[in-house]
Amino acid sequence: MISVEGLTHYYGNRRAVENLGFTIAENEIVGFLGLNGAGKSTTLKILAGLIIPTAGSVKIDGTDLIAANADFRSAIGYLPEDPPLYKEMTVYEFLLYVGQLKGRSADAVVARMPHVLKVCQIEHMQHRVIAELSHGYKKRVGIAQAIIHQPRLVILDEPISGLDPRQIVEMRQVVRDLGKECTVLISSHILGEIAETCDRVLVLKNGQIDAIGGVAELSAAATAKGGTRLTFQLRGTPELVTSALKSVSAAIKVAIEPDGEGLVKLHVALSEDQREKVVAALVTAGVGVRRMVEDDSELENVFLGLTQGATA
């Protein structure tokens, strides 16, 4: 459905994205992952038709978005990080206005309204003035405005930033429901969220695509790039620990910090999975190993592994 080729964009002399190329199938939920400045928002803005890229093409169902006239924007719904809301309006009035602004008749918007209110779980808020809503509900109204005109592509830039844990769980369901009726692109810093909701992940680094795939695929790729990260609680001195790890060739990053009386916390990144060797080296050197855990977020490992060397 969406085909991006050679997408490049410069802000003045500063490169935001370069030579991006990917395809996204219909009704797929794709996550955009990357550090700040990696080019996520720029890519999403181009896909939303807000900015015209310096080079490259974006085709939606074979139609070139850049060459197409403004009418084509009615096929796209976009939610930026800060939801664009007219706060003096009620939720209902606002959605009715945005639906018409996006090219639908008032009757069509009214007919679709109950479904959108239900999907976004804001039925009971429809007659409230937007200024009075909590941040979480404003986000939901933001999503509602992005889908009220029944777009084929919905772009959500950081849809869960600023939400509390309960709202995040609810928002996850909202995004999953969206995937049943349209293609969804999401960027998020909350990595677990990408794993929970997205069919595929696209990792951006310094304006270029570093990896594309499912979470499992990317996890394997990250391990190959040095994605195994361990945290130890040890009894010993930092000098002793450092000296012990010199014999472990796979230890590419080591950080030691005090962790109470006579204890240290060791963070180590391994280029390959040699955790037995690490433990053996520490014990041989006389360091007491009290605890060892693998960093628990699988996707975080992927993210850190893949973005190593990126300039944030």
Partner: peptide, 14 residues
């Protein structure tokens, strides 16, 4: 200032 310009810019209106 209020961030609502994006609604207009992403609309099919020229």
């Amino acid at each position: 200032q209020t961030g609502t310009m994006v609604l207009l810019e992403s609309s099919p209106l020229s």
